[in-house]
Simulated scan of single mutants.
Amino acid sequence: MASLSTIRNVINAVSYVSVKAAGGPAWKLFHGAPPRTPVRPEQREVHDRAEQETLTVAGREIRTYRWGSGEKPVLLVHGVSGRAANFAGFVAGIEALGLTAVAYDAPGHGSSGGSTCTILEHGAVMTAVQERYGDFHAVVGHSFGGTSAYLAARRGLVTERLVSISSVADFGSLPDTFCGQLGLRPALATELRRRTELFFAPERDVWNRFSADHRPEEITARILVVHDENDREVGVDQGRRLAASYGDRAELLITSKLGHRRILGDPEVIGRVLDFLKD
């Protein structure tokens, strides 16, 4: 299999001849799920003691995990290239509060089927998990999982509290961010926007309507936004924008030197989230 750097160089080279032609492989990278990541050794004990089930959502088998008696479920939603086990550090604390931790491997991730995971596919799975386990006391989402949770909440997902960690507020920033991270030419971001709009049709105005800060009055849950000032994948300005849009209903925690992924395992972050989940 060609390396990512080789694929990037080929896409960029083709784009000088035809941006539309280069947009095909760029779209596959942008739209497709990344390589699946294994359960890390430090996550294994928590992962293995979960009660696991399989739900069929839109024809794909989705692996779910539950820790606890079922009372007051707290849904944990991972981001791109993640899996449910990424929240292993939260589980014991959630159980200690008398709550039930529930999670799933998103489509194309972990032990679930599929090869793509869009914001609408995330939302469909959240709805199916709620139908199986009951209305959520809280939803905790990391990165794209958090962004997806805001849209799901506006479209009927029931939750009293919503925590987003390292999440994008502006859905429209994703093509530019993606191209910047991979080193693709800016012209390809425009092509990705075009293909995204075609893909989601007949949904309209997706760049605004799929943003986490769109129509904040439609979400009644209390909100905690957590973001690291050294996040190189999603800038801290996204977290500040997200918290500001929800005004007095939102709390903002800015951390330092944790980046985009290590933040999920930080004891102080976990403690702050658990405090927010208390009745």
Rank of each mutant, 00 (worst) to 15 (best):
A189C: 01
A33E: 08
Y150A: 15
Y246I: 11
H260I: 00
G146S: 09
G183E: 04
R215V: 05
L55N: 08
G259H: 04
A26W: 01
I11L: 03
V140R: 04
E251H: 13
S112K: 10
M126Q: 13
R44C: 03
N12K: 05
R154P: 04
G70M: 10
K20F: 04
F171W: 13
L120R: 15
E203Y: 10
H78E: 07
A103V: 08
P107C: 07
V269T: 13
R66G: 02
A153M: 11
G145M: 04
R215G: 00
G156P: 08
S111G: 14
R193P: 03
R60D: 08
E229D: 13
G141N: 08
R63E: 06
G123A: 12
T37E: 11
C117R: 05
V140T: 08
T159C: 13
F199G: 03
H47L: 08
V226A: 05
Y150F: 15
G183M: 03
S5D: 14
V74G: 01
P267G: 12
P216D: 07
T127A: 14
N9D: 14
Y16H: 13
H78Q: 10
A101I: 12
R66N: 03
Y16V: 11
L151I: 10
A103G: 14
V39N: 09
G235Q: 06
L277P: 06
T6D: 14
I119Y: 06
E131T: 15
E121K: 08
R63F: 00
L75G: 03
S245L: 06
L120H: 13
G114P: 08
R66M: 06
V91I: 15
E233M: 07
F171S: 03
F210E: 01
E42Y: 13
V163N: 08
L224Y: 07
G82N: 01
G82C: 04
G134S: 11
T177S: 09
R209Q: 12
I62Y: 02
S148A: 15
F90D: 03
T56C: 00
D105S: 10
L75V: 00
L4P: 06
I165K: 02
S115N: 11
T6Y: 14
V236E: 09
E51P: 07
E217V: 05
G108K: 06
M1I: 12
R193H: 08
R161E: 12
E217N: 14
V168R: 13
G70I: 03
E197T: 07
A243E: 01
G32R: 06
G23T: 04
V236P: 11
G23N: 06
A92E: 14
K28E: 12
G183R: 07
K72E: 12
A169K: 05
D213N: 15
E53V: 07
H142M: 06
L55V: 11
F144G: 02
I119E: 05
L242S: 08
G32W: 00
F210G: 01
V163W: 00
F87Q: 03
T54P: 04
V57R: 05
V140W: 00
R161Y: 03
